[in-house]
């Protein structure tokens, strides 16, 4: 450590601006990555000459970046790129749908628990604490293995294991908002509980909900890919990024690209949502910024 080691406490103006710029940049990069992936996955397969299930045994294990298969072909000679994009549709759909569901459940539980303190709130929040005691992957795998897998059931299960954070955030905010003058005033003029919750309190918590929801998409994509990788999630021949990795494991030595590209796709999507969520959090409440 040099003598200057501890003397950087006062922020330098130029660097601070650089920091803001860069953080903003990261959030923008995240948004661009997500938007790009969504567009590619939705529209991309239409422009591909290959079908996702077209088997071509004479052209198995074509390496990427040479020849007609841009990202190579798999053990059955199917085009990897078109499968990757179709898998992206499924994985992104599960991510968004699970996020929507878990947000609805989390907001419902959080608003009710924060609004009705006393027994209702205590019971609801203790239930949240209890579910949080299970590492979510354990819970997820148990349910996924027992229920017959499919896109809808996996979405439900992922949502079921990721609503608790939203509930906690919303509960805390609603509880403190309730005491503010505007809420007390609204209560005093005699609006109904439902009106107070939905029209007065909820809009003030929206920022925190958006942040939590964005980060939840990332989480849902990760969870889905892992369950599918283990074979309990989306079942082939429907491709998902997770089950493509499962199939690729056998050919790790001879055709590593089959494992690398799906993983890169997952990472890109998850990084995108995480950067976006982080940028949104900074924008909404700078005090919560752990990166400072």
């Amino acid at each position: 450590m040099s003598a200057t080691a501890l003397s950087v406490v006062p922020r330098r103006r130029g660097n601070l601006a650089l920091g803001r710029f860069l953080r903003h940049r990261l959030a923008l990069f995240g948004a661009a990555a997500v938007l790009g992936l969504v567009l590619l996955c939705v529209a991309g397969p239409w422009f591909s000459p290959f079908g996702p299930l077209t088997i071509d045994l004479r052209h198995r294990f074509q390496p990427p970046f040479v020849g007609v298969h841009w990202l190579g072909s798999d053990q059955l000679g199917r085009d990897l790129l078109v499968r990757l994009l179709l898998a992206g549709r499924i994985s992104l759909f599960v991510g968004f749908a699970a996020m929507a569901l878990s947000t609805v459940v989390g907001v419902l539980v959080g608003v009710l628990a924060g609004f009705y303190r006393g027994w209702t709130g205590t019971i609801l929040m203790r239930a949240v604490d209890a579910v949080l005691c299970f590492p979510s992957i354990f819970l997820l795998l148990t349910l996924a293995a027992l229920v017959s897998p499919g896109v809808v059931t996996i979405t439900l299960i992922v949502a079921l294991t990721s609503w608790m954070e939203v509930a906690r955030v919303v509960e805390g905010q609603v509880r403190s908002m309730r005491e503010r003058d505007f809420a007390v005033a609204a209560e005093a003029i005699g609006v109904s509980d439902a009106h107070l919750m939905l029209r007065e309190l909820l809009p003030n918590v929206l920022g925190a909900i958006v942040v939590a929801a964005t980060l939840n998409v990332a989480r849902a994509i990760l969870l889905e890919s892992y369950v599918s990788y283990l074979g309990y999630g989306i079942q082939p021949p429907t491709p998902s990024w997770g089950n493509m990795l499962n199939a690729s494991q056998e050919y790790l030595g001879s055709a590593p690209w089959l494992a690398i590209f799906p993983g890169v796709a997952i990472t890109l999507a998850v990084v995108g949502f995480n950067f976006m969520g982080d940028g949104l959090r900074d924008a909404i409440d700078p005090r919560l910024d752990v990166h400072r």
Partner: peptide
């Protein structure tokens, strides 16, 4: 953000 299992495979 990197999936742990994929990092393991790599």
């Amino acid at each position: 953000s990197v999936p742990t299992f994929w990092f393991g495979l790599v």
